[in-house]
Amino acid sequence: DVAEQLTPVLPDGPGEESLQFVSELKDSSCSGAVDVSTVWWAAAGHRELRVVTASESAVSLWQPLAPDCWGKVYTWHLREIPVIQIVPLPDTCNLVCVALGELEIGEIRLLLYSSETDSFEHSLVKTGNIKAVVGLKDQRLVSSSRTMQEQQVEMVSLSETGGSKDKQTLMPPEETVTAFAEVEGMREALVGTTAGNSVVVWNLKTGQLLRKMHIGYSYPASICHRAYSDSGLLFVVLSHPHAKESESCGSPAFRVVAFNPRTGRSAGVMFCCLPPGPAGRRGDVWDTAGAAVLTSGAVAVWDLLRGRCTAVLPAGPAGRWALARWASGGAGLLAGRCNGTVHLYRY
């Protein structure tokens, strides 16, 4: 039924860009999947893409053994505080970053293999009332945390051994930062969204807060996913988890907004709608593709440049999808069910 309902939103059918099933990974010991991701892992002079799965109390690393066959390499048990999410570290090898907490993130940990002790370990990177965290290229991690009095925004450079090499304090905006996104192709630029529905821009090298630009009142509580700088404009991919469905344009899943950082003015560029009916949940963006799990248990994929839905994974008889994440380096889409099943699709 779900597939039939969703078919009309794909004007040209699934087409070339539809998802091709590659392989399945089944974690029979998983009692409730909370996140899935990929990590580059180097061992014995060979670098490969591995899958990372997380439940509240354990994070597992999976290795490709043969076509369509995954084997669990190791499981880190984290029993004191529940795991909330895996924080992807783009281009980083042999390091998995996880956020733990109850309702909010209380600590960030690195999971790694230590060749010195020939064992898998985990180390604490940060504690506090952490509101947002993002992993950036070159093993950098930015987080915002809040005390009663003030907000702290900080970037740490991570070492291969799980420590922090270097720290840079970023100037905090007055409003709480709710999400960060790296700016494609600009190593020293970072954008964030705030609780007051603004986009802020930092210089990561100097820690300066360069600009605060209001998004507008139409879509409150916007979350940034990705940004691109082109022709003097900053294009920011936003999602609106709390936006209401409207008759004219349906429920917004992702919006691409162009900001002129010089003037602070903005204009909507592209608008991706959820299929009629189902509301959206967590979304993920890679390059110019967006994916989100719908409340119906289906996964929808959008081409953010053309503003159209390009593929839908219906919930199907095996169950509802709970997670949708893009794999590193364009390796495809990971779709996960609560029971620990993960499907890898080529996109």
């Binding site: 100037m171 100097t206 300066q208 807060l209 003097g232 404009l233 002129n260 003037t263």
Partner: peptide
Amino acid sequence: CSESDLGPISLNWFEELSAEAPP
């Protein structure tokens, strides 16, 4: 979107804003 909507555009906005913003 046009320049009239968004105001004057600068290709070096990052460097310019970094030079103008408080350290």
